[in-house]
Each structure stands twice: as C-alpha cells, then as structure tokens.
C-alpha cells in the first residue's frame, strides 16, 4: 500500500507527513497569535468609532489607516519586506517558524476587519437595551455584544484560517516549508504534476473540512437554528 502510494506520488510518504505537520504548525501558531491581536484591534475599531461606546477618533483613525496599509500590501511583498524583523525575532529568515511572522502580520488586519464587522452586526438596538439596564460599557461588551456576535466571530475566524492555509502555501515558495514548499520543490520544479495536484486536492479537502466545522460551531453558538 505504502509502496503503491509512494510510487504514484514519486516521493516518500515521510516527506509528505513532515510537510503536513509543518503546515499545521505554521497555521495554528499564526492563527492563535493573529486571533489575539485581531480581536483586540477589532474591539478597538468597533467601539472607538464615531458613536461607539468608547468613541475615540484618534485611536480609530490611526488604527484604521495602519490596517489599510498592511492590508493593501501584497503578501509576497510582505513576506520579503518583513525579513529583517523575522531575522531579529526568530534568528533566521527561512523555515516554518520564520514563516509564522509574515503570516501572522498579514492575517491580523484581515481578521481584525472581519471581526470588526461581526461586532458591528450586533447592532445599536441591543446596545441600547444594555445601556437602559444600566450596564457599564465593559458589561455591554462582555454580556451583550460578545455572546450575540459569537457565531459571527467564529465564521470570521474560519475565514481567517482558510486565508492562513493559503498564505502558508505561498510562504512555502520562499523557503517557508510545509505543503506549499513540497508543491514547489518536488511538484512544480520537478514536473511531478501528479504530486502537485494531489497536494492541491489535500488542501481543498482540508479547507472544506475547516469551513464545515466553522459553520457547525457558529450555528451552535447562535442556538437559533
């Protein structure tokens, strides 16, 4: 069985397994770090805007512009541009750990925007109800907006993970490791299209799986099927 598969793909299964582990490592670490920062910025964006419960236009405008700058920088450019930072933080420019830096950086503003929208979706009405009850601004967020937007936040998170898988593949092209590197080094470069398309199929399946999981969790959080 193993021989048949290796013969078909033209590469040892150990290499494939190792690359999968690398991808999972890059995506999950980036996801955790990016989620923490993105959520923090999303809360700032949603509540410091005009009419928000912590209205602060200086904070809002600065954050808004910075996020737009990072978001409009193409990921391939970002990959190269942050290399000095990567070197300083990780000690090397290549490998899966090094790839986490640009992946996280590009994911933060993207996910911050998505989560900002999730938080804003909850709407003015529920906030008014919270204020009429005499809730503090902090209580408004924790007891009203967060539980109500949890389903939507989970969907934003799912979109973020799928985006990270995409950028992990791209990071592989410039020495990042993982499935992306495998596709480039053993598939595309060596004209092994069987391997290349097989790995693409794997990526598609993983994406589908994550999206389905995200939808299920979101529905569970909403409880109003």
């Amino acid at each position: 069985m193993r021989e048949v598969l290796e013969g078909f793909l033209g590469i040892s299964l150990d290499k494939i397994n190792a690359s999968i582990v690398e991808t999972v490592y890059m995506v999950s670490v980036s996801l955790i770090i990016a989620t923490v920062f993105a959520f923090f910025f999303a809360v700032l964006l949603a509540f410091t805007r005009k009419g928000g419960i912590f209205q602060n236009l200086v904070v809002y405008n600065v954050l808004n512009v910075v996020i737009n700058i990072v978001r409009s920088t193409p990921f391939v450019v970002l990959l190269v541009a942050v290399m000095p930072l990567t070197k300083a933080l990780i000690g090397t420019r290549i490998g899966p750990t090094a790839a986490i830096v640009p992946m996280t950086l590009s994911s933060i503003p993207f996910m911050a925007r998505l989560m900002e929208n999730s938080l804003l979706d909850t709407g003015r009405g529920i906030l008014e109800a919270a204020q009429s009850i005499g809730a503090t601004p902090f209580q408004c967020i924790v007891y009203f907006i967060l539980p109500e937007s949890l389903g939507s936040l989970i969907l934003s998170l799912t979109t973020g993970v799928v985006g990270l898988i995409g950028s992990s593949a791209m990071a592989g092209y410039v020495g990042g490791g993982g499935i992306g590197a495998l596709i480039q080094n053993y598939g595309y470069s060596k004209f092994n299209f069987t391997l290349m398309y097989s790995l693409v199929v794997v990526l598609i399946l993983v994406t589908q799986l994550l999206q389905t999981l995200g939808n299920k969790l979101a529905a569970l959080a909403r409880k109003n099927k």
């Binding site: 529920i126 008014e128 109800a129 009203f144 539980p147 109500e148 949890l150 389903g151 909403r222």
Partner: peptide
C-alpha cells in the same frame, strides 16, 4: 427605569 422595545432586543444566545 425599565425599558421595552418594538424589536424586543433580547439576547438570542
């Protein structure tokens, strides 16, 4: 001062 709304504004979750 209690308040009630046209769209109820309950927490769905």
């Amino acid at each position: 001062i209690g308040m009630i709304f046209q769209q109820f504004q309950l927490l769905e979750s």
